[in-house]
Design a protein around this nucleic acid. Structure first.
Length: 494
RNA sequence: GUUCCCAUCGUCUAGAGGCCUAGGACAUCGGCCUCUCACGCCGGUAACACGGGUUCGACUCCCGUUGGGAACGCCA
């Protein structure tokens, strides 16, 4: 029987979860769910300086919002320090690691020199050349040091890689790796905090992770990690390094100098901008993966059904805002009117619209009217505001084109009396539509003239959805009132 | 500089040697629909980076060039 699939998402809580991270989380989640596996959430907060509780909370909130549920965790590395120190001792006992006393300044100078000499800036192992006695003495005297992993001078390290490189593997020359540091500085009595390449390996091994989907920027870390798995005698997971999402021809990042705050990378900010989780997942999935039948508008369920590693692409994709928006609009249209009432509620309220003015049925009608037009949830308040606030001004262009028309006020007057003459039971879309048609017929004026005038009078705008629907939602009294005030306005034009 | 990765329309991509006169989607440009806007529908413009091989045949395989990207942290 095959081993149970176990994947994980292991963000560091040093900021908000961003779109790239979401994609990584999504692929790990997909793979676990698809294979009846386990998805683990682990917070990598060993960097006490930069990690914040707020970020952890944000990440968890983001994951929940996206619907990426996890089976185990969240684990916090900061609460697992004992485990790392135990493992550190194992490595030290084996002689796989050694203490180094170099200061950051010294290391920087070494790197600088290597760069000048146009050589690969790897550690020159000067700490390894210290005598045993000297090392012991310096440690005993309380001097700070870090632990470095001793990388073999010769041979290759193979990483089990399913995507990048040729074949199913990837070979790195050991001589190019360099002895990397696995803990922050510590003393004999106060051990240094574990660093990424160390804590990550220990956790992935202990949590029995079988597959790691992560960004390609981690590829250079991988041989180091494989070396550590080997040193512990742990099994190495399968890696799938995904291409990096680009924006402006650079890795997508909030630190990009061309970063445009209108298009945030933070997933929670996208949420607040009115993007839907399923649209976000859909769009992100297609950045590096393609559907077997080239379908592009997919529910999470459909992605789950058809996802496979062999349809993953290797080239770095570009983040296309237009396509993201288009995908969002599609998912929006797929929502029921009732769902949309709920989804848009926070946006409507934030815009100060008083939803209690209408009953649920009317609100649903509004959604039905606008969901073809809006691309994000945030666009609904603006699109529907005329239902909540009677127009006090009218669009200039419309005034010019329609109100300054010869008989605008006469047309409005007869329209008003027509509507006032309607029975309450007639105030439904179909009947209004028929009555309007009859009215147009009887007056002998083209709908193309009557329509725009009525629309402008009722909404203040030249662009809005079906007239009959507007009238139906507005009701007889409000409709009549708006027509009256528009007539007054037209009168004031002369 | 070193190491590694990548390379099809403007963008995301399909393409596993003949199905390719290279398909789809977004964007864009026309047109239709229509009381407006949008949706929808129809149509157009638009790509295999280059050079060598291998092969009867290369977008597909190999090598090189060029181009792009990433990493080179006591961040993750």
């Amino acid at each position: 029987m095959a081993k149970q699939v176990r994947t994980r998402f292991a963000p560091s809580p040093t900021g908000s979860l961003h779109l790239g991270g979401v994609r990584t989380a999504f692929f790990n989640w997909l793979y676990a769910r698809q294979n009846g596996g386990v998805f683990v959430l682990r917070i990598e907060d060993t960097d006490a300086e930069r990690s914040t509780e707020e970020s952890s909370k944000g990440i968890i909130e983001s994951m929940k919002w996206l619907g990426l549920d996890w089976d185990e965790g969240p684990f916090y590395q900061s609460q697992r320090l004992d485990i790392y120190f135990e493992h550190l001792k194992k490595l030290a006992d084996k002689g796989a690691i050694y203490p180094a006393f170099d200061t950051p300044e010294e290391l920087e100078a070494m790197r600088e020199e290597a760069r000048r000499a146009k050589k690969n800036p790897i550690y020159d192992r000067r700490a390894l050349r210290l005598s045993k006695d000297e090392v012991q003495h310096r440690i005993d005297s309380g001097e700070e040091f870090v632990w470095r992993f001793k990388v073999p001078d010769e041979g290759y390290t193979e990483i089990p890689e399913l995507l990048m490189g040729t074949q199913d593997e990837h070979k790195i020359l050991n001589s190019t790796i360099g002895d990397f540091i696995i803990t922050r500085p510590g003393t004999k009595d106060k051990p240094g905090m574990p660093l990424y390449n160390f804590a990550c390996v220990v956790d992935d091994a202990l949590m029995k992770i079988t597959h790691v989907f992560r960004g390609m920027e981690h590829l250079p870390n991988t041989p180091k990690q494989v070396l550590m798995y080997n040193a512990f005698g742990y099994e190495v997971p399968q890696f799938i390094h995904m291409p990096i999402i680009m924006k402006n021809n650079k890795k997508m990042s909030k630190r990009d100098p061309d970063y445009d705050p209108r298009f945030p990378v933070s997933i929670l900010e996208r949420r607040d901008l009115g993007y839907l989780p399923e649209a976000t997942l859909n769009f992100l999935a297609l950045l590096g993966w393609s559907h077997p039948e080239s379908q592009e508008l997919l529910t999470t369920e459909e992605i789950l059904k058809t996802f496979s590693v062999d349809r993953l692409n290797k080239a770095n994709p570009n983040f296309d805002e237009d396509k993201y928006m288009h995908t969002n609009a599609w998912h929006l249209k797929n929502k029921s009117d009732a769902e949309l009432v709920a989804l848009t509620k926070p946006f409507m309220e934030k815009a100060g619209l008083d939803l209690s003015m209408y009953d649920e049925k009317n609100l649903e009608r509004m959604m039905a009217m606008e969901k073809e037009r809006c691309h994000t949830l945030a666009q609904f308040p603006e699109a529907l505001s005329y239902f909540f606030v009677a127009p006090s001004t009218y669009e200039e262009k419309g005034v010019e084109k329609s109100f300054k028309n010869e008989n605008a006020d006469k047309i409005l007057e007869s329209a008003a009396s027509m509507i006032l003459g309607l029975a309450d039971s007639d105030m439904v879309k179909e009947t209004i539509d028929a009555k309007l048609a009859a009215f147009v017929e009887a007056s002998g004026i083209k709908y193309g003239i009557v329509g725009p005038i009525l629309r402008l009078a009722l909404t203040g705008r030249t662009r809005s959805p079906g007239l009959h629907e507007v009238i139906e939602v507005l009701g007889k009294t409000e409709t009549a009132a708006r027509l009256q005030s528009a007539r007054k306005f037209i009168g004031s034009l002369a």
